[in-house]
Structures are given as structure tokens and as C-alpha cells.
Design a protein around this nucleic acid. Structure first.
Lengths: 176, 176
DNA sequence: GGTCAAACGGAACCTACGTTCCGGAAAGGG
DNA sequence: CCCTTTCCGGAACGTAGGTTCCGTTTGACC
């Protein structure tokens, strides 16, 4: 039989996750483990007991971040996708870690894969509305990848051009 | 009056540039200076005499790589853009450094800026054909950023989906 | 309160990399 | 052929960041 986890251990795990989320949001994927530990008010040793490698920690954080993404809004499929991605880009604007993950190099192949999966699911949802606003030949992965491209564009072009490029990308997906 | 550069120095500079181009193409932006020196059959000290910092070397290489990009082909503006980007993506497929530069994180802000400038010029060229294949409201920067987004998509989605996404992106730029 | 395993903190370790240094090699002019 | 000046090689330095180690602390159970 296994003993219950000590109370301080449970609390520390939570504080580490919270601090990591915060620090990653603020400073991006590049942050130092020591910085995270410090932000959590904890020693590095403690951090490593709870998350044996850097990747484990990042994974845990991006997992919840991903899960917290908005759902596809109501309305016509095409419009809904536009609103969704605009919201997403707004949220990404102040989450440097997610921006790093989605718009730039892939620190972890698997994290990107999860994003693709998530966005593909969302694309399928849009397709299921089947209201004729999307072109017939568009597939769920098409939507996912186009949205990811859009995120990269937004990062490069800056906030002022976001609306513009959302509109251009949607044109490509729309029924002509 | 300055003496002429020694013959071995000139030769080494050339070998370093060639080796760096090769190694960067093969292994991407992350390569170690020592690896480049070794590939050039030269000591690191020599490498640093010719290129005082890593950035100087990278800059020199990406400069020629960029200049070597294909020009906009003949034909209708929209088709020409499609051919251009397809060619570009094919070339990028075996140039890890350029892929890193264009599709992922920006190691050097200025290198990305040069790419945007280059592609904007190309977009303007397409617009100047003024043959009604591009939508009226599309601008040269629009084209540049959409192409960059496409590069990211190609990297994520893999070669088999390139044609598909080129087509989707062009739809967004086409006159409806 | 006493005992003990679980958990903690943070110094220390290790590897990776950019960069610097300097003793020796070798162009090239006289 | 000699001397000077330029170059060369690669060991060594400094920093950064992930990870490990271990003496100390602390919660949980009796």
C-alpha cells in the first residue's frame, strides 16, 4: 500500500505549474528552469522532483493552455472560423510561449502534433455545419494548416495586419 | 597604402563561405562554429579572423542564398506567383537553414526583414502585370506575408500537401 | 513526542557554444 | 635566403542552462 503524498508536495506541484504557466506566457519557450523555480518560490531540486525534465514541465503547461483555447463560435462555418482565429490570435498576443510553439520552431514535435490535431478537430466541426460557406473540396486538415500559417503571418506582420490576413485566408477557404 | 591580402587568406575565406553554406543547408541554423570550421578544414581562429561573429557569417551566407532565389516567372500574375512559390518550396526542402530562417523562429530580425522586402518586391512585380488575375484590393505586402505563411504551412504539413496549400492560398489572392 | 520516509533547497556538475589568445607557420618583398 | 608581417590552428576561457546530489527539513503516522 502506498502512503498518501505529503501536503507540501501537492501544494508545491500546483505552485510550480502556476508559476511555469505565468513565466512561459511572459517570457516564451526559452525560459530557464531556475527562473521558473524562483518564480514558484521553490528550489530547482523540488521542481525536478515533480517534473523530471524540462520537457515534462513544458508539456504539462502547454497541455492546459491548449485545452483552454476557445471553442468554435456559433454561426456560419466560415464566419465562425474567422472569429475563432481572431480570438485565438488575440489570446496568443500575450502568451509568448504559445506563440513560440505555434508560430515558430517546433521545440517538441509532439506539441505541434497536438495543436494540429486540435485544429483539425475544429476544422471538422466547421465542415460538419455543412452550410455551404466553405468550398466543397476543403478538408479538416486543410483548415488546420491554413490556420497555423495564419498564426505565423500574424506574428510576422504584426497586429495591425491580422484582420487583413484573416480575411485573405478565409477567402481561400470560402465557396467561390 | 595597404598590402594585398595573402593568397592563403583569400582562399580560406572562400573555403569557409562554401563550407558554411553547405553545412547550414544540411544542418540548419543551429550549427556549431567548430563544425563549420572543421568542414572548411580550418581552425576556429581562422574562421573568426574572417567572420568576427557568428552572425556575420550567417549573414554572409543567407545573403547569397536569398539573392539566389528564383525570379518571378513569365505568365499571368497569379500563375506566376504559384510557380514561383512552388519552386521556392522545392529549393527550401533541402536547405534547412533557409527553412529555419523563413518558417521558424527569427534568429536575426534583419534577415527576416530582408526576406519580407524581397518578397514584397516580388509581389509588386506581380501586381504590376495588372492582368486582372489578382484581386483588386491585394497589396504587395499582402502577397509577401501570405507567401511566408505558406512556407510555414509547407514545413508543417510536409511536401505532399504543398500543392494543395499553394492552391488554397492563391485562391485568397485571386480576383473572385 | 518520536521515528522515518518523503520532500526540500540550492550548490555543484556537466555539456555545449561562442569567442579569445598566443605560439608557431609561411607569404612575399628586398 | 632573411626578415617582417600576416595568418593559422586549436587549446583554453567564460557563460548559460539542464540536471544531479546530498545534507537538512518536515509532514505523517504511531
Amino acid at each position: 500500500m502506498e502512503r498518501r503524498q505529503r501536503r507540501d508536495a501537492v501544494a508545491n506541484r500546483a505552485r510550480i505549474l502556476a508559476a511555469a504557466t505565468e513565466v512561459l506566457r511572459e517570457d516564451g519557450m526559452g525560459v530557464d528552469m531556475r527562473a521558473i523555480a524562483a518564480a514558484a518560490g521553490v528550489g530547482v531540486g523540488t521542481l525536478y522532483r515533480h517534473f523530471p525534465t524540462r520537457e515534462d514541465l513544458i508539456h504539462a503547461v502547454t497541455g492546459t493552455d491548449l485545452a483552454g483555447l476557445a471553442a468554435l463560435p456559433e454561426g456560419p462555418a466560415l464566419t465562425a472560423l474567422g472569429e475563432f482565429v481572431t480570438t485565438m490570435l488575440t489570446e496568443l498576443a500575450d502568451n509568448k510561449a504559445m506563440t513560440d510553439l505555434l508560430a515558430a520552431g517546433a521545440p517538441s514535435e509532439s506539441d505541434v502534433a497536438r495543436c494540429v490535431a486540435h485544429l483539425t478537430g475544429l476544422g471538422q466541426e466547421a465542415l460538419d455545419r455543412d452550410d455551404g460557406t466553405l468550398a466543397d473540396d476543403v478538408t479538416a486538415p486543410d483548415i488546420a494548416y491554413q490556420l497555423l500559417g495564419l498564426i505565423r503571418v500574424a506574428q510576422l506582420a504584426g497586429p495591425s495586419l491580422v484582420e487583413r490576413h484573416v480575411s485573405l485566408t478565409l477567402r481561400g477557404l470560402a465557396r467561390s
